[in-house]
Design a protein around this nucleic acid. Structure first.
Lengths: 341, 341
DNA sequence: CTGAAAGCGCTTACAG
DNA sequence: CTGAAAGCGCTTACAG
């Protein structure tokens, strides 16, 4: 009959009140630290002691119900959309969590099941979450209006719409891609191939825009034959390189919209006995954890997915708490020069 | 004043009852599908229509409160414990989610803050979660007793204790490592180096045991000088290889307790101008997504982290629902032969 | 400084 | 077949 054998989670405000010889109202007040100045210090101490002894924690369901206020945010994403983005998703979660924990919120994962699943709608209406983080790796304006109808705070990560206006956080994709071209040109390249990501990815589109902008800034023309439409897959990188090598006039450098495709491109080059960067330079985008241990070490555009996550969580929590926030936050990218270019 | 402008989440059971001209008890009954046989079909239809029209979803807080039953499970982990395991964590989440979604549960992420944080305790006592998935990359018997005291269903992933008895799911680490040695011996190797993971990882210990078992089964002696104590980091793999190359008699093959360290080991070999597998064969453990595109493609022991996740979630949910479950589930590993060994 | 009581949105015996 | 009412564990004006 020792202390720990009692099922701890059964302790309620009533138990504490009884043990302390006060009303539940008083317990509630000390728990919430409200009107504390008008509560007898002795009473406070006694209640606190009992709470400590029983390790009492108010039931969230009850608190939520009576306050109509939550501290849980949901993250909506496509479970199959990030297969090739493992570390990406991971870093993002880490970033979100850092803020969520700091602000004493909770994070609930809400995977989208099908193309037009409205799982999150249920979570919203049932008051399971008080705000949404939307992470889709592709443009999906179809779902956003549904979310908007719910009249709930939300922030979109790493994507945005040209048609709709809503809060989002993204990397400086265009700037980063433009910087990539700048660098390559400085290194003497004039024939720069581009491997794009999937068309339905806003990030991919922006990087493509950045590539074109970079060319233009450096007085180079955009040439259709130096553009390869990829899809962020490793195999696509290899295929792209196969295509470039087949050109009558090969590019001397290739800029890939994603590290993974750059890996594939380099793999293909090595298989063909070509050397990187001597024969062809390859520059990636992402700075994934493996860029550094790849052979050769990958030069790339670093983007801080962690910061995207933490900024988005910060924006969302501020919205939930009724504070003002900027409509968008763009996280800087940075060129990281290693061996491949 | 169109339909969609009304803040949807405000709809309560009372509203539905009023619109349908019935009592809230009746609404509750049709929502829960209970005692349906004794409810007038016409009434049912009417209520259902209204619910549909207003897209009513019962408040989880209210339901939880009155039913004292939840459908949320929490995943406890060390946010900094998986930095080098990104895809690992990712696959695990994917596996968990597959089951969680199927069973109509929710997943809440509960990162441990400090060494002995009892964050999860709060979640349990406040009834935020009805069960816990414990994922620690190292042995931490200190926390498990705390969880056990809470008297809540839980399952440990990819780790277990020799002292305590509790439900867990893990890969067949020992078997896998033993298979690795078998394969290397079949390929003619008799001097097989081993790079271990961190000492405080149960996985690492088991793989080490498996390595020794494999040697013994093949009549080879365990030699201390062929053992290098690593820590699952890429740099450790390189350092291990540096050590092995410094031996008077080098190993002809090296088995690494993790792919990442194998990558580091191979990188070092390449830097020294040695060839894999010709000069030294290297075999990994994990079959991480990059094993395939590494140069050379990494031969390794595949483990299905996805299955660890889904099995653990399945066990946990069964526990929560009061169904019987096995005390442990061991997920098979499999040798994957590629180029490096 | 403190308590009684209404109310948050549901569920579920208990009556009828 | 259906409703009135108690109860789940809290919060918060309202009194005193």
């Amino acid at each position: 009959m020792n202390e720990t054998s009692r099922p701890a989670q059964q302790v309620t405000i009533k138990d504490i009140a009884k043990k302390a010889g006060v009303s539940i109202a008083t317990v509630s007040r000390v728990v919430n630290g409200k009107y504390l100045h008008k509560i007898n210090p002795g009473t406070q101490a006694k209640v606190r002691r009992i709470i400590e002894e029983y390790k009492y924690e108010p039931s969230v369901s009850a608190v939520n119900l009576s306050k109509s206020r939550l501290r849980t945010i949901g993250m909506v994403f496509r479970p199959h959309g990030f297969k090739e983005f493992s570390t990406y998703f991971d870093e993002m979660i880490r970033g979100i969590l850092s803020k969520v924990v700091e602000k004493n919120f909770n994070l609930m994962l809400l995977p989208l099941k099908m193309e037009h699943d409205v799982n999150f709608q249920k979570m919203v209406r049932s008051k399971t979450v008080s705000g949404l983080l939307l992470f889709w790796t592709h443009i999906d304006d179809l779902l956003i209006p549904t979310v908007m109808e719910e009249n709930i705070p939300f922030v979109v990560l790493s994507n945005y719409s040209r048609a709709l206006t809503y809060p989002y956080v993204d990397s400086a994709n265009m700037q980063g891609a433009s910087d990539a071209v700048d660098y390559l040109v400085r290194k003497g390249h004039a024939r720069i191939g581009f491997i794009s990501g999937s068309d339905d990815s806003r990030n991919a589109q922006d990087r493509f825009e950045g590539y074109k902008l970079g060319l233009k800034k450096n007085g180079l023309p955009f040439q259709q034959e130096l553009y390869y439409r990829g899809s962020f897959l490793e195999s696509e990188g290899a295929r792209a390189m196969e295509y470039f090598l087949g050109l009558k006039e090969r590019p001397t450098a290739v800029f890939s919209a994603g590290d993974i495709m750059a890996f594939g491109a380099i793999r293909y080059l090595k298989e063909k006995g070509l050397r990187v960067p001597d024969d062809i330079a390859v520059l990636g985008f992402d700075d994934s954890p493996l860029a550094e241990s790849f052979d050769p070490q990958l030069s790339t555009i670093h983007q801080s997915v962690f910061d995207i996550g933490s900024n988005a969580a910060d924006m969302l929590i501020k919205q939930i708490e009724g504070k003002g926030t900027p409509l968008k936050i763009i996280v800087d990218t940075k060129l990281v020069v290693r061996r491949s270019a």
